[in-house]
Design a protein around this nucleic acid. Sequence first.
DNA 1: GGTCATGATGATACACTATATCAGGCCAGC
DNA 2: GCTGGCCTGATATAGTGTATCATCATGACC
Lengths: 176, 176
Amino acid sequence: MSDHAGHAHHGAHHGHPRGGDIEASLDRAAATCLARGAQLTELRRQVLRLVLDSAQPIGAYALLDRLRGERRGAAPPTVYRALDFLIEHGLIHKIERLNAFVGCAEEPGHGHTHAHPHPHQFLICGRCGSTAEVCDESVAGAVAAAAGRLGFHVHRTTVEVEGICAHCHDTKSTSG
Amino acid sequence: MSDHAGHAHHGAHHGHPRGGDIEASLDRAAATCLARGAQLTELRRQVLRLVLDSAQPIGAYALLDRLRGERRGAAPPTVYRALDFLIEHGLIHKIERLNAFVGCAEEPGHGHTHAHPHPHQFLICGRCGSTAEVCDESVAGAVAAAAGRLGFHVHRTTVEVEGICAHCHDTKSTSG
DNA sequence: GGTCATGATGATACACTATATCAGGCCAGC
DNA sequence: GCTGGCCTGATATAGTGTATCATCATGACC
Ligand SMILES: [Zn+2]
Ligand SMILES: [Zn+2]
Ligand SMILES: [Zn+2]
Ligand SMILES: [Zn+2]
């Protein structure tokens, strides 16, 4: 499987943690949770690790299969409860179009939670399946303005863009 | 859960704002399909009528239940195939967050199809469950700009905003 | 007329996604 | 010890979406 998963923040220190970065991210996530009076338990840490370890958005049942490798007897509620917690605390996001989950590309500790989420959008490549999380304020602003014009009070915004990533577009004629 | 979704079959009126406009919309939809070399068959017309007749986004299995009132033996593929067709031709949209379907608020016949969809966003009220389709070019433009900066080629964009509609916000203290 | 390809629908079964519910374990505080 | 809150285990079920094959109508073609 290709490992070129989209990186929205070119050259930045954000992006999907890979390899050894994952454990550091887990530690930061644990600290974030503690500061909020919540606990990143071993189960939740395992699920978060599996999400972060996946190069692409991963479904709840795929997570469940992998989780069973280290936690025998895990069942759907096991993983769904962990996912709910992780979403609640802004550590992962759900991509609605795919019924799948990805780690948040923003560093934790910025006060992002389910109640105060950071603006984010997903670019989903229909060819290689990679996704990139972008945090474009102008998109969020345009949405807020359009909603405000209608007197609508925004709580949460889902933006999911389907298309072809730069890498696939560049290589479409050489490997298609 | 509100209970004013209606139980009637293909009656002409339920007190919905659209009312008798629905049959006219169906006729326009049929013409649009014909012009594209497709046919809005009786089944598809029935499903589209049920979607348009629903005051709120309606799920596939709720549609199936109602469809069985006029087409005995209807099964999940019956309604999903019709829905796929209607989406393909831009006559309805799917709201991913709700796993539900709504009629397109834009008039058909503007060349909107699955291949060339019009920009649209949904405002979903978390209190009354109503949704509004808005067609804000600036939102679409901001998304296109953000994606373009990353070399991402946009094919389709999903924007779904959860919040409180103006009506519910105005009446939040007067009625449960 | 007969044959064949196409598209739509009927019908059965299945896969995938998510939640409800109850029971048991753990720990802090009283 | 007891209680209450939180987390997890475990079973069952609800909700959403597809795969597959059969049947039927249509229209092109010979
Ligand atoms: Zn994020
Ligand atoms: Zn790609
Ligand atoms: Zn529309
Ligand atoms: Zn409302």
